[in-house]
Design a protein around this nucleic acid. Structure first.
Lengths: 141, 141
DNA sequence: CGTAACTTTAGAACTATTCTAATCTGCTTG
DNA sequence: CAAGCAGATTAGAATAGTTCTAAAGTTACG
């Protein structure tokens, strides 16, 4: 009879998704997963997601948000995007793609077009290329 | 008779360089500029430069290192390179070029080849492209 | 249901960076 | 060259984002 505060409209598929990723579908993780994956791809910051959870009427501690973001990332459900030194951004689009970044607004946008990078030299001896990130920095004009 | 602790082997040109950039050639700035610009292009972190100043026998406060890095950057003598969320990196190569980044070691290397990026879409309405950064993440194998 | 393993949480701790206010220095002027 | 001021340096406090800790709560499985 306890635990009346069910996470609002948790999609029934969310639990399955979490389980498939090897994560227990706890109330908090279901909420966060719903916020992240329910409406197409998006970019979040820990602070933003924390705020959204609170606004959804199901507050989650900031530590849990950080935990979840990292677990989701390790599970391949999220990707970390590094565009500014002061904050980490996470992207629900985990396929290979690139980003626009608007510094002033801190706004990150997926580039849907296929970016080609040519002229890459051999990586230094003893290393291999793991990923190529392209960030197109834009400014309001 | 005071101020016997002259910065070691400050190149005579360094003062001119600083003055040209609109910065007073103080003892600290001369030292830092020498460490940065005397031996070809390099990449530093505030912590690293601070350490090097100490080892050069001319300790400089960390705040001064940060101040100098930003002033040099504003003056166009340095460029900030964003490759990891936890620390800022600065590059003495301010021309257009791209980077290899080895995560484990935190090592940044210039790519000397000319990288071409094709397939860039129009930037979002009301914005214009300011810079395109390519980071080739590599791993020891 | 019991219980072992896993989660969440508040708050402390930590790290990189910036700020503050006091002191000092480089440069110009008399 | 002494005085004085704008600008620079500094130690240490403050801040922001993130991670850690250890105690309390949940989940899943028999």
């Amino acid at each position: 009879m306890a635990n009346r505060k069910i996470s609002p409209r948790a999609s029934p598929r969310t639990s399955e998704r979490l389980r498939a990723a090897g994560l227990r579908p706890t109330r908090q993780r279901r909420l966060l997963a719903d916020l992240l994956f329910q409406h197409g791809h998006r970019h979040v910051t820990a602070e933003l997601l924390h705020q959204e959870a609170k606004e959804a009427g199901c507050p989650v501690s900031l530590a849990t948000v950080y935990n979840a973001l990292h677990q989701f990332t390790d599970a391949g459900l999220l990707q970390q995007v590094i565009v500014e030194a002061s904050q980490s951004h996470f992207d629900t689009n985990v396929g290979p793609h690139q980003h626009f970044y608007e510094e002033e607004a801190g706004r990150l946008t997926d580039i849907s077009a296929d970016i080609g990078v040519s002229g890459l030299p051999q990586p230094p001896k003893g290393t291999k290329i793991q990923r190529v990130d392209v960030v197109v920095r834009i400014r309001r004009d």
